[in-house]
Amino acid sequence: MLADIFPTGYHATEMAGVKPGDQTVIYGAGPVGLMAALSATIRGAGKVMVVDRQPDRLRLAESIGAIAIDDSKVDPVQVVLDETMGLGADNGCECVGYQAHEPDGQEQASLTMNRLVASVRFTGSIGAVGVYVPQDPGGSDDLAKQGKIALDFGMLWFKGLHLGTGQAPVKKYNRQLRDLIAGGKAEPSFIVSHELPLEQAPEAYDHFDKRDDGWTKVVLHPAMAGAGA
């Protein structure tokens, strides 16, 4: 947890400037999105909204007090506006990245970023930790192949939004987050669904990649019984 996802989720909320009482929306309820939800909660957000379409992940978001928004059933931007008196969230986190896709699987790299621009209120901030790449030969269209997205920059500028990006500086946060865990104030392990021997990595990757129900986070143990064969 401390090697990556908890610091990465925390970094998203740091770049988004989440403060006590804030209304925060998080796009993506994978391990990092759920850690961003946990981090926003720790930072005192008054309302944390998490958008995804996998029921198991949404249930985990709800288990820590977040509002789960299923974008395969509702328009997530509208739900965020409804939850914030039409103003939009104070801040938002992008925890999906360049392989963002519609619930039917159609990739659209700009999907979550533009939803964030639409979901966050004027002068708000966005922290984007989902991975984007400078080239993506497997991308779904010419822009994506060149590592570009059709960002609603006009609206982003018009609203005076702040945008932070990039991989997290783990060491900036890991001691503090470790001590929150040790002090019983944070329990990031709530997302762990499987602890398996290293030998089972191929099946585990397959299940996790397919978003199979209940495979929310896998921890592999090289020395576990059954390993080393």
């Binding site: 391990p31 360049y98 993506d136 497997g138 990757y205 592999l220």
Partner: peptide, 16 residues
Amino acid sequence: TSANICGSDLHMYEGR
């Protein structure tokens, strides 16, 4: 002793 599978591995896993 513990090594986690990460969502960011999937970009590599899928050949992207």
